[in-house]
Design a protein around this nucleic acid. Sequence first.
DNA 1: ACGTTTGCGCTTTAGC
DNA 2: GCTAAAGCGCAAACGT
Lengths: 92, 92, 92, 92
Amino acid sequence: MAEADPAIMDKGSIAAQELRLFIERVERLEEEKKGIADDVKEVFSEMKGRGYDAKVVRKLIAIRKRKAGEFEEELAILETYASALGMQLSLI
Amino acid sequence: MAEADPAIMDKGSIAAQELRLFIERVERLEEEKKGIADDVKEVFSEMKGRGYDAKVVRKLIAIRKRKAGEFEEELAILETYASALGMQLSLI
Amino acid sequence: MAEADPAIMDKGSIAAQELRLFIERVERLEEEKKGIADDVKEVFSEMKGRGYDAKVVRKLIAIRKRKAGEFEEELAILETYASALGMQLSLI
Amino acid sequence: MAEADPAIMDKGSIAAQELRLFIERVERLEEEKKGIADDVKEVFSEMKGRGYDAKVVRKLIAIRKRKAGEFEEELAILETYASALGMQLSLI
DNA sequence: ACGTTTGCGCTTTAGC
DNA sequence: GCTAAAGCGCAAACGT
């Protein structure tokens, strides 16, 4: 894995080195991303330990993430379909 | 792949043959399962072509799958959490 | 579950009927899929009864599956490289 | 974003505050994750600007990832076999 | 710009 | 009940 002095490398090796650096940057970033994903899991574990319903909280976060009104719109469509099928969703 | 007459096989070969049959049964079943999953995708494509909102229909099927009242219960919890946060879900 | 005569339904009901049929097709397929999954479990139960270690056999099946996929994956990589070089892989 | 003094909140509001903090922690982490994903995109843009074929490089990275995972997978298989034989792999 | 296709993350399910 | 794996849905990315 030790690299020779770039000054004495031919053009192909320099390109190879450049490519390797790009790849390593990407791989490093992907690792960081995974680490954060694990942190999220930890937070949910903690919430669960505090008695919260993780599933519901996930939904809540998803709703917050969407632009306002989109959730209500989707519920409305869902209700339309449901009533067409004679289902009663009895929304509270 | 051609097998010799089992009658002249030793005990190990018979066991190997038996194991192979078990494995092939499982693999065959897994293939069938995949085929059906593809069929489901086709049905959704067809629905989409007929103008239905596939996402909503998936949700509807998920709701039907749950035992009665579970959906409403989840919505209730969701509302509880949301109102605790001062969010208005305004369920039409 | 008894349905009214579609002939006397209005347009909305006809659409509802169509939606219902789509949904039932999906639900039927999902049931089949579940049935096959149960068959797989039965096979493993039978194997256990015959003295096999289910975990090991699962590993074996997973290995066979991966090996099977590796060839086409190699082809995909080859194609990617080739197209990057502007080659036509008609020789495959 | 300014919060009232928790000390003068009733019990329900205190729980709401706790929930809010959990949610904000998750949302903060998700933002970080998104930021890193954007960084990855930037790296690929830069690579493209340097004349690299992004698709090929993605394949290379995927291959490296798989290769890295294969060793530990082999270990897992070895462990499975060993435990099936009642061996202790303390020698690993 | 749009539609198709692949890869990634989440949800759910199965095994222990 | 928890952990691990598979199936699924979503979203970004590529080609048209």
